[in-house]
């Protein structure tokens, strides 16, 4: 049952619920949108949701290892955004549009 005491004391669960919601919003963006840039932004949202749960676990178990993982995830996310945007630029050069449906036209 939902009681107000559990709502007033912020625990690990609250952060995990927010993280799950953020992840699902990002997932909707990836599934529903057609613009490559917005899809990349939604992927960033999903990665940030995972980061949030890492930091929440790290805080509530007083273990710093989670924050190291967040550091790695951030670096990988930046690299992924760089490559994704480079591919988006090549798509735009060819088709003057950044629709995801043009990606099947890409060849080596």
């Amino acid at each position: 049952m939902l009681n107000f005491e559990s709502l007033a004391a912020i625990g690990l669960n609250h952060y995990l619920i927010v993280s799950a919601a953020l992840f699902c919003i990002g997932m909707v963006g990836v599934l529903v949108r057609r613009n490559v840039l917005v899809i990349l932004m939604s992927i960033e949202l999903m990665l940030n949701a995972v980061n949030l749960s890492f930091v929440a676990f790290s805080h509530f178990s007083q273990n710093i290892n989670g924050q190291v993982m967040v550091f790695f995830v951030m670096t990988i996310a930046a690299a992924e955004a760089g490559v994704g945007l480079a591919i988006a630029v090549t798509i735009f050069k060819r088709f003057k549009e950044v629709n995801i449906s043009f990606f099947e036209q890409l060849k080596g």
């Binding site: 670096t75 930046a78 690299a79 480079a86 090549t90 050069k93 060819r94 890409l106 080596g108």
Partner: peptide, 21 residues
């Protein structure tokens, strides 16, 4: 990895238009 990505991103975006680079 970051060095690789920096080189790779430049290489990918230098591809001229056309399906065969």
């Amino acid at each position: 990895l970051l060095l690789l990505i920096a080189v790779g991103a430049v290489a990918v975006s230098r591809i001229k238009g056309g399906t065969h680079a």
